[in-house]
Design a protein around this nucleic acid. Sequence first.
DNA 1: AAAATAGTGTCTATGAGACACTATAGT
DNA 2: ACTATAGTGTCTCATAGACACTATTTT
Lengths: 247, 247
Amino acid sequence: MNEVDDEARFLAAYDLGAYPRPSVAVDIALLTVADGALHAALVQRAGHPQRGRWALPGGFVRPGESPEDAVGRVLRVKTGLTDVYTAQLATFGDPDRDPRGWVVAIAYYALVPVDRLRAGLTTADDIVLARVLVPDGTPLAASAVAVAESGEIPLAFDHAAILGRAALRVRGRLWYAPIAFELMPDEFTLRDLQLTYEALLGRETDKNSFRRRILASGLVAPVGRRRAGMRARPAELYRFDRRPADA
Amino acid sequence: MNEVDDEARFLAAYDLGAYPRPSVAVDIALLTVADGALHAALVQRAGHPQRGRWALPGGFVRPGESPEDAVGRVLRVKTGLTDVYTAQLATFGDPDRDPRGWVVAIAYYALVPVDRLRAGLTTADDIVLARVLVPDGTPLAASAVAVAESGEIPLAFDHAAILGRAALRVRGRLWYAPIAFELMPDEFTLRDLQLTYEALLGRETDKNSFRRRILASGLVAPVGRRRAGMRARPAELYRFDRRPADA
DNA sequence: AAAATAGTGTCTATGAGACACTATAGT
DNA sequence: ACTATAGTGTCTCATAGACACTATTTT
């Protein structure tokens, strides 16, 4: 009997189910920049547990589905969005993190321009855009605070920690990966882009320095038009140039 | 009836088990630097599936256990090591990644000085230290290649991809987090440290530049002794200074 | 003395912050 | 003409690579 048949027979008889298994969910820090500040989409929990509290959009991963698939499904169902930039953040598996029982959450962050996000949110009213305050002087494992007009919003489960980690991750990757462009409309001015960077970084940056870096990166290409109608000199419009900067 | 009682009653009756759940495992890229090169600990699979192939040490997460707990347990059982630096890498949840069925793997990387690792491996002989080749010019999702004296070692499941990601993660964090010290003995020379950096980076660095950076970082403190017995001028010994560089 | 390794001096290139300056639109 | 915003010139400072040099030990 050869090894391949042997393995095939083994697999047919194999039963993973002998051991207890956790539920696996995805939770998504769906981020955008609005009014010059970082915001996250939050859904109000309709049922128990933690009814009435606000949570990151999420859901259980279904059989035959990859976690990335689940993220796409959750975003589509809860916000109507497709083709959103998403990246894995971290996995939270503390056995006590969810009062319903053993739930391992794979956390993702997603970035989408405000306008697209707002368009999706008009349909559902159990979902809001809340401003995210990242406590500064943040080392690691810093919890974010979500704020709406009504004041601070209490988050469910460990979602404040996830949100904080997501904000810090985005901040840390900002200069190394072209993720800020995921938050921009198709055409934007360098000033717009700088405001997005500043919102994500939580601090101001020098104008000239910023322009040099962006233009030198080659990630941006002028469209050849300018944005008029403002009350001063019109700014050149740019678009994100996805080309991998070929040699 | 108040909200708290309501929620308590709900939780008592709640059954997560209505939905199918995956098994959740941890896989550990246990890394060290030996002979001036990155190495990983690999265990030979005793049973099916993929019997005879080499895999990262790993195991299923048990009920009541956090993934970090599971990592600690696996390291203790398979290598005898405790107090090892570990950090989460990423979670791999593709439904087809394991032929046994639906297994979500939370991948970690762990760093340990060679001497400690070798001491642990002497007890078990189904575990080896294999050199890790990270294909250069690596963008992302680069698979590593494990090499032993006998030549290239075929890895089980998606472990080559995990190992590649781990190597790149360590490389990327090297200058931003004091992780290289996790690979050093208690006392070391700056030359030793530089060789470790070079092994992880996969390239040489300038001696003077390296010394300036390390000494300026304040992460290192001279012990006040030197290492003699070499065939030239003895080098000053340093130790890792974990103090958070107080103001 | 020669070899080998530890450790330093110093030049240059690069890149980012600071900030004053010029340019061009609307009113 | 005035104001507001876009865009540039240029100085300084910090950091890292290059590389030659000095220092100290073993043989």
